[in-house]
Computed example of a mutant assay.
Amino acid sequence: MRTKHLSIYNIVLAVFAWTLLVGAILVYFSLSQQRQDLYRSAVEEKVKLAETIKETVASPSWLYQISLLRDLERGLIAGLSKFKDVRFIRVVKISGEIYQSSLAGEIGKKIKEPGVVEVAQSGKPLIRDDVFQNEEIKLLIYPGYEDRTIWIGFSLKDTEVLIQKLLLRYFFMALAALLLLGLALFVILRSVVDPIRKITASCEDVRRGNLDIQAEVGWQTEIGELAETFNKMIGDLKASRKSLEESKEVLEIRVVARTKELEDLAQSLEGQVKVRTRDLREKMEQLERFNKLAVDRELKMIELKKDINELRAQLNESTSKRDRSKKTNTA
């Protein structure tokens, strides 16, 4: 069963792609986490600002100073609203009447905001989206002193700018890391994969019987040692092939000599067989002549016996006739 061929290039590219994907996911989650941390930090900063306003205004010394300077609280609100990302600060009563504001002309006006009553009753701050002068901002409604709430409208534009800077920084860092990783993979491919491919091609040539090749050694790394070992193996194979060829030539010479000896021996045996065959033929001819003589002699003996028996019969017959004649004459 033939195993599936996997290219190291494909494996390296897959590793690079997975690294890119994992890096992008890590950067995304890290950036999201930092974005949430920055948003949380900006909100906590405004909550502390509202707490500072509440603690300052509610302190006995502040009440004493206000009794002397009526515009002191307004100056405090106006001064604190000069932070870069703060758009306005208001102190709003639970009825919706604006008690203090950093915006000119708002004091004494009423605002319809259901969250004021909720914040005053629960004592928990409320944060919601708002629009101020065509700009999307965040509005913090914080429970203040007595029946009042502290409103701080602030923008997250600076936070967004910082997040964009972080995004660019992460992007360039990831790009630099990818470039370094790509360069490292390129060096690995050039220093490992390409020499391995060349050695594989050389092995294929050796399999076809070509031993007049040498692998490039290059750097003295594990791949270089592999190339040196391959070249030594080729040298050993060439020496073995030369030894086999020499052994083959010697063996051919011995075979030729042995063949000549066998041919000479065969010719010698063939001559001896011919001589023996001729001798046997002569003896068989003699035996045939002797057998023929013996058969002729036997036939003659049989004829001779037959003649003797006939003569004996004739003799007996003559004797019989003579005896009868004597008897006749005697009578």
Score class of each variant (00 low, 15 high):
residue 4 K to V: 14
residue 8 I to V: 13
residue 10 N to W: 04
residue 14 A to H: 06
residue 16 F to M: 11
residue 17 A to W: 04
residue 24 A to C: 09
residue 25 I to W: 11
residue 27 V to R: 12
residue 35 R to E: 03
residue 36 Q to F: 12
residue 37 D to R: 15
residue 38 L to G: 05
residue 42 A to I: 08
residue 44 E to N: 15
residue 44 E to G: 12
residue 45 E to W: 03
residue 45 E to D: 11
residue 47 V to H: 14
residue 55 E to V: 11
residue 58 A to C: 02
residue 61 S to I: 04
residue 66 I to Q: 04
residue 70 R to S: 12
residue 71 D to I: 01
residue 74 R to G: 02
residue 76 L to Q: 06
residue 78 A to R: 13
residue 80 L to G: 12
residue 81 S to C: 15
residue 83 F to M: 03
residue 83 F to L: 09
residue 86 V to R: 02
residue 88 F to Y: 15
residue 99 Y to C: 02
residue 100 Q to D: 07
residue 105 G to C: 10
residue 108 G to I: 08
residue 109 K to Y: 03
residue 113 E to G: 09
residue 126 L to V: 04
residue 135 E to P: 03
residue 137 I to D: 06
residue 138 K to F: 08
residue 138 K to C: 04
residue 150 I to W: 00
residue 153 G to N: 01
residue 155 S to C: 03
residue 156 L to K: 13
residue 157 K to Q: 08
residue 164 Q to C: 03
residue 168 L to K: 05
residue 170 Y to M: 09
residue 175 L to R: 01
residue 180 L to S: 09
residue 181 L to F: 15
residue 184 A to E: 00
residue 196 I to T: 07
residue 197 R to A: 14
residue 200 T to G: 01
residue 201 A to P: 07
residue 201 A to C: 06
residue 207 R to Q: 12
residue 207 R to Y: 09
residue 210 N to D: 14
residue 222 E to H: 08
residue 225 E to R: 12
residue 232 K to G: 00
residue 234 I to S: 07
residue 234 I to M: 09
residue 238 K to E: 09
residue 249 E to T: 15
residue 258 R to P: 00
residue 268 S to G: 12
residue 274 K to T: 11
residue 281 R to Q: 06
residue 282 E to M: 07
residue 282 E to V: 06
residue 301 M to V: 12
residue 303 E to H: 02
residue 306 K to I: 00
residue 309 N to T: 11
residue 310 E to F: 10
residue 313 A to R: 05
residue 314 Q to R: 13
residue 316 N to T: 14
residue 328 T to E: 11
residue 329 N to V: 14
residue 331 A to T: 15
